[in-house]
């Protein structure tokens, strides 16, 4: 699901970014598998996202090109949380 559509305050896992964004995102220390949490909408209808201690502002179009998925991946609701990466420095 595009990050822009993810509910505020709900942690998500970074799945992929558009080709043009991959370099910019990895420069900031983000990569597939990391946990992201959309924190608020900005005046330009973009997002502020928390990734560990990192706070990132994304415009709407950029946030629409970042794909995320839920941290909990079924088989069932009781399935263990699988976090492929880490959020910041734990």
């Amino acid at each position: 699901m595009p990050l822009i559509d993810w509910p505020l305050g709900e942690p998500a896992v970074l799945a992929a970014a558009g080709p043009a964004l991959t370099g910019s995102i990895s420069r900031l220390g983000l990569r597939a598998g990391m946990s992201l949490t959309p924190m608020m909408r900005t005046p330009g209808r973009g997002l502020v996202v928390a990734a560990g201690e990192l706070r990132l502002a994304l415009d709407r179009a950029t946030a629409a090109h970042v794909q995320v998925h839920a941290a909990r991946r079924s088989p069932g609701p009781e399935a263990a949380v699988q976090t492929a990466g880490h959020a910041g420095e734990r």
Binding site: A20, L21, S24, L28, L56, A57, A61
Partner: peptide, 12 residues
């Protein structure tokens, strides 16, 4: 010049 995506680190 493509529109530069806003992907900005917000320092504390």
């Amino acid at each position: 010049m493509l529109a530069e995506p806003l992907l900005l680190d917000l320092p504390p």
